[in-house]
């Protein structure tokens, strides 16, 4: 998957609009899904997706395959654009009608054929995440996918704020050597 995206990005850097359309068609469903979870509103998520893809088009030449997969680069662009949007609108999860929630898609027991679709890097990351305590893993994933703050996680999980902070801190500390 990632090789195709990297090749398409390379063509985008040369202003190839057909390659860009193909890149959009193949990558936009998951990137839109990411924006939807962070923003919770389809119209906002579509605005962000549009903005993110324009950035991807403009910055395609700066993508460096040595530093990571093309898809993760695009996911980072989309996620950061979503967070900027949230910040500019001063939106908080509590103010939206939550439609997208849960972590079923990231559960440990994925269908075997779904697992095969995952990149080696993602499979490695899943192995690292499996080493965390469930609560640590849940907090980190909810932060990544939904942008929840410590306070929001404390309310959502009905746990003291200090406990949530400790789970996240220890979770990241445990992840560090594995990711390295």
């Amino acid at each position: 998957m990632e090789d195709n995206f990297a090749e398409l990005l390379e063509l985008c850097a040369e202003q190839d609009q057909r390659a860009f359309k193909k890149l959009y068609q193949e990558a936009s469903p998951k990137l839109y899904s990411l924006a939807l979870r962070l923003l919770q509103k389809p119209e906002l998520a579509e605005d962000v997706l549009q903005e993110a893809f324009i950035k991807i088009w403009q910055k395609a030449g700066t993508y460096n395959s040595q530093k990571g997969k093309a898809f993760t680069w695009m996911a980072t662009v989309t996620r950061n654009t979503s967070l900027d949007k949230l910040r500019s609108l001063k939106l908080k999860a509590a103010e939206t009608n939550v439609q997208y929630e849960g972590l079923d898609f990231a559960s440990d027991d994925l269908e075997p054929d779904h697992q095969e679709d995952l990149s080696q890097e993602m499979q490695r990351l899943r192995e690292c995440l499996k080493q965390l305590q469930p609560a640590q893993r849940e907090c980190i994933l909810l932060s990544y996918y939904y942008g929840h703050t410590h306070q929001e996680l404390s309310v959502k999980l009905n746990k003291p704020l200090g406990t949530v902070k400790a789970w996240i801190r220890r979770g990241l500390e445990s992840l560090k050597p594995c990711l390295s």
């Binding site: 936009s28 469903p29 998951k30 990137l31 839109y32 899904s33 990411l34 939807l36 979870r37 998520a45 579509e46 997706l49 530093k67 990571g68 997969k69 898809f71 993760t72 680069w73 996911a75 980072t76 989309t78 996620r79 898609f105 990231a106 994925l110 679709d117 995952l118 990149s119 890097e121 993602m122 990351l125 994933l141 990544y144 996918y145 990711l179």
Partner: peptide, 16 residues
């Protein structure tokens, strides 16, 4: 960011 960006792979696709 390059490592955590892989998490987006797990998401179900949704058509805009």
């Amino acid at each position: 960011e390059s490592k955590f960006g892989n998490l987006a792979e797990l998401l179900p696709g949704e058509k805009p």
